[in-house]
Structure formats: structure tokens, C-alpha cells
Simulated scan of single mutants.
Amino acid sequence: MRIKILAFIGLTALAGCGDTFGEQSLFGAGAGAGAAVLLDGNPVVGGVLGAAANVAFCKQFPERC
């Protein structure tokens, strides 16, 4: 369980990366899909949600991306 939590934190940290819309989408999708797999969820849904969340975050807080 501890490894899953650490992996989830690591994947979540990756979601903040990306200079372009495509990079933000790709990194967010990867982090979301990875987190879904670690948490026994649906990786497709996790990828879509991760991509949307990362793009929204980077639009709201561009200085953090």
C-alpha cells in the first residue's frame, strides 16, 4: 500500500508539467491513467480526467506550469 501511495504522489507531481496544450494534456493523461491503475480504477477514465484537470490547472495557474 505504501508503494502505491508514493507512486500516486509521484504521478501527480508529473501532472504539473508541460509548456504547450499538447504536453499538458499528455502529461495529465499519463498521470491520471497511472493513478487509476494504482487505485484499481479505469485507466481510460483516469486519463481523460487527468488530461482535463491538468489543462484546467495550467490555464488557471500558468505560473505554476
Rank of each mutant, 00 (worst) to 15 (best):
L6W: 04
F57H: 11
G47Q: 04
T12S: 12
S25M: 15
A29T: 07
Q60W: 02
P62S: 09
G34W: 07
G50V: 13
V55Y: 00
F27M: 15
T12P: 01
F57I: 04
K59I: 06
D19Q: 05
F57R: 08
D19N: 10
L26E: 13
L39W: 02
L14A: 03
I9C: 14
A15W: 01
A36Q: 09
S25W: 14
F8N: 14
G41W: 03
G16H: 01
G30E: 09
A13Y: 04
G22Y: 05
N42R: 04
A56P: 04
G16K: 02
A13S: 14
V45F: 07
M1C: 06
E23M: 08
A33R: 03
F61A: 07
C58E: 02
G22D: 04
A35D: 05
F61P: 01
F27N: 13
F27D: 05
G10V: 12
L6R: 07
V45K: 14
I5D: 10
I3D: 13
G32I: 05
D19L: 08
R2W: 05
L39M: 12
F61L: 11
F57N: 10
F27I: 06
E63M: 07
G16T: 11
L49G: 02
P62F: 05
A15R: 06
I9E: 13
C58H: 02
F57T: 11
F57Y: 12
V37H: 05
N54Y: 01
A13V: 10
L39A: 13
G41N: 09
G28C: 08
T20G: 00
E23L: 04
A15S: 15
F61E: 06
L49H: 00
L38S: 12
R64Q: 14
L39P: 00
L11F: 15
V37T: 14
C17V: 11
A36F: 04
G16I: 12
L11P: 00
E63N: 13
F27C: 15
V45A: 13
G41F: 03
G34V: 11
A7K: 12
A7W: 09
F21C: 00
L26H: 09
C65S: 11
E23N: 05
A53L: 06
N54Q: 13
G41A: 09
L26Y: 14
G16D: 01
G50A: 09
Q24Y: 00
G30P: 02
S25C: 14
I9Q: 13
A31C: 09
V48N: 01
G28T: 05
G16M: 09
I3P: 00
A13W: 05
G34F: 09
A56T: 14
N42C: 04
V44R: 07
V44C: 06
V37R: 11
G34E: 13
S25F: 15
L6K: 08
A56N: 03
V48D: 03
G47P: 03
D40H: 10
Q60M: 07
A53I: 08
T12G: 07
G18I: 07
S25Y: 06
T20P: 00
G46M: 08
T20H: 01
